[in-house]
Simulated scan of single mutants.
Amino acid sequence: MADDPTTTITNQHHHQRLAASPSPPPPAPVPQTPGPRASKLQEIFDKALARTLRANSYANFSGCFPTPAKHVPASLESVWRQLNAKLEESAKAEFEDILTERDAVTQLNELDRLVGEARYRKDHGEGEESVGPHMLSPEELYRAHLLPHLMETQAKLDARIGSVQVENEELAGKVQEQRAEMERLLSGLEAVVADVEGAAAATTQFTAENRLRQDAAQMDGEVKARSEI
């Protein structure tokens, strides 16, 4: 039985399309420059750190130390600037360590690429019906299986950033407590100085009064001696 002409033409067209289809190109290397998600992650961290530093304003800081703020404001402001700089430096260093340890920029950039590819295929009608799993390259299959891991990594990073923000807020609270303790110590020191000054004044007054008594006794003795002569 002769083949159906329609079937023959369809098969020839199918084989021609497969022969003309080029091999899938290798995936583009993932750039190290932060993409949209990595940039958003950095932006969230910067905002959280900025809020923490704003809470430690000079007005709040100097309010805990009224005596130094009145007598040595320049020195107190220098201490405040150094404290804020150290807090900012430590938070940024820890954040960078987390990014490096988790290879966050590369992973988030890869997630951006996979989401972009999926969106492009959806917009152009390239779904599972047009491209079966057996048509994908091993690299593409590997990246598809990697997507859940990337999403899990992003969730862990978000949780870690939230934890760092909470730690920063706790650190700011401890700083406030230390300032209050320093203020109490300064108040106690001022009270001790006042007591010492009062004791010194009383001692001076007692010495002066005792000298007057001695002078009066000496004069009285001289008068009695002269009268006896």
Rank of each mutant, 00 (worst) to 15 (best):
P5S: 08
I9T: 10
I9K: 13
H14P: 00
H14N: 11
R17L: 14
R17E: 12
P24F: 00
P27H: 10
R37A: 01
A38N: 00
I44E: 08
K47C: 00
K47S: 06
L49I: 08
T52E: 15
T52P: 00
R54V: 14
N56T: 12
Y58S: 05
F61L: 01
P68S: 06
P73I: 07
S75W: 10
L76D: 07
A85C: 10
K92V: 13
K92S: 11
K92G: 03
D97C: 03
T100C: 00
T100Y: 00
R102N: 11
D103H: 07
A104T: 03
T106G: 04
L111N: 00
R113G: 02
A118W: 11
K122M: 13
H134E: 15
Y142K: 14
P148K: 08
H149Y: 12
T153I: 11
Q154Y: 05
K156N: 11
A159E: 15
G162L: 01
S163R: 04
E170Y: 03
V175H: 02
R179S: 09
G188K: 02
D195R: 05
G198I: 04
Q205D: 13
Q205P: 03
T207G: 09
A208Y: 08
L212K: 15
R213E: 07
R213K: 10
A217V: 01
Q218R: 13
